[in-house]
Design a protein around this nucleic acid. Sequence first.
DNA 1: TTTGATGCAAATGGTTTGCATCGGG
DNA 2: CCCGATGCAAACCATTTGCATCAAA
Lengths: 155, 155
Amino acid sequence: MVIMVKKKINEIENQFKEHRLTPQRRLVLEIFLENRERHLSAEEVYHFSRNKGKDIGLATIYRTLELLVQLGLLRKMYFGDGRSRYELEKVDVNEHHHHHHLICLNCGEILEVEEDLLHQLEEIVEKKHHFFIENHNLQFYGYCSSCGREYEEKK
Amino acid sequence: MVIMVKKKINEIENQFKEHRLTPQRRLVLEIFLENRERHLSAEEVYHFSRNKGKDIGLATIYRTLELLVQLGLLRKMYFGDGRSRYELEKVDVNEHHHHHHLICLNCGEILEVEEDLLHQLEEIVEKKHHFFIENHNLQFYGYCSSCGREYEEKK
DNA sequence: TTTGATGCAAATGGTTTGCATCGGG
DNA sequence: CCCGATGCAAACCATTTGCATCAAA
């Protein structure tokens, strides 16, 4: 697992051309690579870094997050809880494969959905509205299986 | 058109049971009814009200917007430009018919899409992830027909 | 008169920025 | 040396809140 992380970071180094891969930036990347499933806010990254002993300034974290988004390594998103969140940009499969998010209205957990069945809908929209779609953003709000009581009440 | 607005406001009055339909609240509603196609931020509502001569406090506008969302008359949304936006909640057709938004990355215009072809996708997600979906939120980011130069460049 | 609504100003909280300092090439 | 990166504190900006005042039932 650690090896995996090291390998990944080495790959990523290539993407830093004009930008230095400083210890702080490397640390932020590590935190995302070690928390692939999470959608971290700036402050959460800050706490992770403190827990690892190293203490980056919050401003540096914000600047690093912005840079990583610019480099296409992170994806910035907003789920309506008052802070931006970031996750590793996964462009593995193909350029137009995106995933979506399930946000539990009860416990706040954010789950990922791999299905991306939006191509069809995108085509319809592009043709009908003459709008060239670059990206999309889909969230489902509801109740996760753990918070099933809400599910029972509503159905 | 004005008559239409008056009629609509009268209908809405019924929804105010424990809450007073004060001049300020009525004005905010009027602004949304007269700008059905727009997605207004709190500050935009504030400017509209000043343009109409009446001068509501910004805090009152925020409190009114929150109330109207609670009453199910407005829908709050976030498109990533640093401020929340609101639009009239349209529950006319049926409870599960939602529309989506096209946000132009060039001029910032927000268009609406009537198609809601997400039922199928929702069913798949609900079954596979045991997640009870209450609502969804879909934005397409790209370039509108007026900003077609970007379209030409990218295709 | 009593309770909720308003308006102002101050507080809040996430994010950004100015600036002095640091450090790698 | 130089220029980009960092850290700290201050600034920013949308939103919220405390509180005195106002107004309608």
